[in-house]
Computed example of a mutant assay.
Amino acid sequence: MIPEKAKNYLEAFPTIEIIDILKTSFINKKNFSEIMYLKESEIYWALELKYLDFDDVFLIVIQDITEKKEKEQNQKNFLNDISHEIKTPLTNIKGYLIALEEANQEDKKNFFNIVNHNVIKIENILHDFLKISKLEEHQLSNNSFFTSEELEKELIFLLSYIIEKKSVEFTITKNIKLFLPKNEIISILKNLIENSIIYNENSIPKVNLSIKINDSFYIFELKDNGIGIPESEKEKIFQRFYRIEKSRNRNLGGTGLGLTIVKTLIEKLNGTITLKSNVDQGTTFTIILPYSYKV
């Protein structure tokens, strides 16, 4: 017979899966330990029942491990994605290295360039992967004072190769003072600007960064004249390794992780990012970040 105290526990758990476990354990007076997924409430519980025979009662311990399980699943998905993304360039490298044996001098040069391109792609994927992993585990850097002119100088330095190669017109709002984690802001803007340049088919790519300050927020607005983003894909672009269909087969060099890094950083800064875009008419990203010190 189920002890009187156990009836109260049964009434406290309306979930049928747990009720069945409790009934079975109480009747058989057996210990129980299991991780359970409660589909109705979409949570994970670590459930443990310990029978205390000296008092003829059960000790019930329930721990909500939803966050832990979600993190484990995200890491598993990410590793699967990494494996999938690296598989293609590795296959290309292997194939062209085999082809080198019978290639003429001109083909050898082309094959070496292709192998080198794929090696760089793998390096970039691993670099961005490690960056995201660190972002999820570490705190942000401290806020510091810097100007929009200093920001412009660092961004141009970091992107000098691609800016010069594609003759980019990059403009930024002048005479703005900021008090934010500088490293994180540079990382966010670098990734966005790099995408604006990479996914741009104009003879002169144009990228404008507007910075405004109102009573409570910094507002960054990055506008380009690139290929744009289809309406059906706007909700997907922040997913890991996602690339818009128009650019997917064009060998444009992105890892598909840049916007994931951007979103992760902005969320850590308690900010938001939105976008407006039309195919072949460019894209505008708007970032809104709170600040704790008015300058």
Rank of each mutant, 00 (worst) to 15 (best):
K174M: 06
E194I: 00
I114P: 07
K69E: 15
F58C: 15
I122A: 05
G256P: 03
I21R: 12
D81K: 11
P14F: 10
D107L: 15
I122H: 06
I198T: 02
K7W: 06
S148W: 05
L178C: 08
Q105Y: 04
E194Y: 00
L269K: 03
S141W: 02
H117T: 08
M36F: 12
D280H: 07
M1D: 11
I18H: 05
I114L: 10
N202I: 00
I114C: 05
S160E: 15
K276Q: 12
P89D: 06
T284G: 07
N116Q: 07
G253P: 13
R248W: 01
K268P: 09
Y96K: 10
T286M: 10
F220R: 03
G228F: 04
G282V: 05
E136T: 09
F13L: 03
D20E: 14
F285I: 00
K131T: 09
N28G: 13
F220T: 03
E17K: 15
K206C: 07
I211A: 03
I125G: 13
F111S: 01
D128A: 09
N143V: 02
Y293F: 13
P290H: 01
T283F: 06
G253R: 10
Q281F: 07
G254E: 11
E106T: 09
K134T: 13
I125V: 15
K153M: 10
F238N: 02
E67P: 00
V119S: 08
I125K: 09
N249D: 12
M1E: 09
N251Q: 13
I120N: 14
V295P: 14
L100W: 11
V279F: 08
K134V: 05
Q139Y: 01
V61L: 12
I60L: 14
N175V: 07
Y293P: 00
K174C: 02
L10H: 10
T272F: 07
N142G: 04
G228K: 02
Q239N: 11
L140N: 14
E101I: 08
S144W: 06
P205Y: 01
S216N: 13
D56L: 02
S277R: 03
N183L: 00
I16W: 09
L275R: 00
M1I: 05
N200A: 08
V168F: 00
S203A: 01
L97T: 09
I273F: 06
I219D: 07
G256C: 11
F26I: 12
I27K: 07
L151V: 05
Q75S: 02
I237D: 06
I176V: 10
L47E: 08
L252K: 10
E150S: 08
R240Y: 09
Y161T: 11
G95S: 12
L130A: 03
K121A: 03
G254H: 06
I18L: 13
D56C: 02
F241H: 13
F241K: 04
Y44H: 13
D53M: 04
E72N: 07
Y37A: 11
I122M: 15
I125N: 10
I244V: 14
I237K: 06
K263A: 01
E194G: 01
Y44S: 03
S144H: 07
I261Y: 01
Y199R: 13
E152A: 13
K121Y: 05
D64N: 15
E184H: 04
S277V: 07
T88A: 07
T274I: 11
E231L: 09
P89E: 04
L155R: 01
N143P: 00
K246L: 12
I266G: 02
S292Q: 14
K68L: 15
Y291Q: 01
L180A: 01
E233V: 08
D280M: 04
K294I: 13
